[in-house]
Design a protein around this nucleic acid. Sequence first.
DNA 1: TCCATGGGTTTGAACGTTCAAGACGAAGTA
DNA 2: TACTTCGTCTTGAACGTTCAAACCCATGGA
Lengths: 348, 348
Amino acid sequence: MADKVTIADVARVAGVSRQTVSNVLNTPDVVRQETRQRVLDVVGELGYRVNQAARQMRTGRSRLIAIRIDPDRDGINGSVLDRFLHGLTDSAARSGYRVLLYTADDDRSEVATFEDLLGAYEPDGFVLTGTHHQDPRASWLLDKGVPFVTFGRPWGKEAEARHPWVDVDGAAGTAAATRHLLDAGHTRIGFLGWPSPSGVGDDRREGWARTLAEAGIDHTDLGRATSDAVADGEAAAHDLLGSDSGVTALVCVSDSLAVGALHAARSPGLAWRVDARPDLPIAVIGFDDTPVAKAVGLTSLSQPLKEAAASCVTLLARILEGTETARASAASPAPVLLEPSLVVRQSA
Amino acid sequence: MADKVTIADVARVAGVSRQTVSNVLNTPDVVRQETRQRVLDVVGELGYRVNQAARQMRTGRSRLIAIRIDPDRDGINGSVLDRFLHGLTDSAARSGYRVLLYTADDDRSEVATFEDLLGAYEPDGFVLTGTHHQDPRASWLLDKGVPFVTFGRPWGKEAEARHPWVDVDGAAGTAAATRHLLDAGHTRIGFLGWPSPSGVGDDRREGWARTLAEAGIDHTDLGRATSDAVADGEAAAHDLLGSDSGVTALVCVSDSLAVGALHAARSPGLAWRVDARPDLPIAVIGFDDTPVAKAVGLTSLSQPLKEAAASCVTLLARILEGTETARASAASPAPVLLEPSLVVRQSA
DNA sequence: TCCATGGGTTTGAACGTTCAAGACGAAGTA
DNA sequence: TACTTCGTCTTGAACGTTCAAACCCATGGA
């Protein structure tokens, strides 16, 4: 029973032509103040809303931003994307865009989905997450001239400046965490990370290594690398804490590994460590400030996801609102690098 | 540089009319086999994809399903929606639909968003989550004749049969959990829930109460109600375990409360309980099988979110594909009630 | 007086698709 | 033979919007 008010209805009631109504909505400055007001009144009165499909057909702009929603890999980190997505939807709406979801199992099928979407729904732009070395998705979009922003910097060096991106400074985060531990009196501070090469993982490791180096502490053999599962974190932490490295604190690349490390630190087999330094209980810091961290009292680094999402929208909108020429030329907006913040809880 | 292949291009190359191409795609049976094949070949060759905007303008169907993405209230439960959303996007794609996101702070603003979306993007249907008593959203959509499905049954009795819904049987879940505890030898089994009235909360409480009653156990004073936060769960569990109720196990309405209960059960102040029955360590079972549950070894009830999402899409698609008559008449498809499954971990 | 200027408005056309109606030939029926 | 039916295909028109161009009228300068 929806009445379906069209621009022609508004025009008729307001006693003007279709085009004038269109002008009131799109380029108000070319319409006489008096007429403009009259039209706006009628628009409100009839509850007119511009039909996207028709507008899109004429202008080629859908006001749609597409983003992929991941299957939560192994649970814990899932909520990060969730929060980012919420921020994105919110910011996009404020800029007059809506968010369209899609899924894909790997890069190849994601590119196939690009083609599908561009052919059918014609989203104005994409937001890519989880960028990695030699990411074929970015190059494909660049190649086709499709506007996009990545949440995650381009890890391949050469592609660096070729598209806009937003990222969180992982190294700055782990550096802050390491300083926090140094301030608490720890000197032998270990790191639980992911195997290299991993853009995100290497970045986070570097902040820890740099900070220890600055403090004049040799970090040789204080690092471990493993895949991102709680059990792996526990094993690696056991290995590190059980050795004669003297480690009393751990910075971890993720909350998953940190939760594992916490288990290890509290395990009976390592009770002697606690007895050895009762003034310095083993400290653990995670990354991402997931709900799990909150639940188990894990100190962790929180990413400003809302801001990151807002930046993505801002950058994308800037490209989309830019002239065709500006879009074609490679003048992509400056990247945005945000700082995570340390949320201190019981674990450190 | 995208070529933008239209139906006219395909028609020209294949040597037929626009309409024939359209028929090949929409009603293949009216086209001669030979012609059909020729057209399909050209479609593949040129990489033609039907333009949604144009199709939508003509047919009034957008092939878009809208759903709200919540701000994760307080963390732990957030990932439930996340997983549901992924399943929804996946199932929708298989049925030829895409998922459009929106946000809203409360029911009123959500209804306002309905109007906005229906006026502009014209989604074919909505999926509502978090249904509750006297939900104004469902009535508004019913009123306007907009197709929708709710994930969560209608809790107001009278509205019961008026729209299709999908839900997970909370009572069946807590009943299974309670039986699991009974089988393990527990008899004094407590329940940590939310204050009544709460559709979901009352339903889950009922499964516990019923099962105890069936086992001939009086559950008076074995239940507690509190808001959904870890600290609240801990306090309530303390209260219940500390009393002389003899409680040795807890079924909880959510993982948040269960995590709190776990803390309480392990707290030094209650060590005497463990000593009293060393054969029966205090058991805790949560609800939702969140990443937190997995991380802390909490036994929990897992909702079949993928199936739930698939059912939502199926029901919605059935309405949308139905004839106009069927849509107008109140013959809404039968509701779907799915069973959660118990994931057993260390805590019970 | 005539023409150029420019602000404000209107008119036709087009975007790509599908609906409704019709055209055409072959085959069946009276 | 003529009329109907059927399968296959084609032709205008329409969905609601915006672009491009034209129109109208008041103003001002030559």
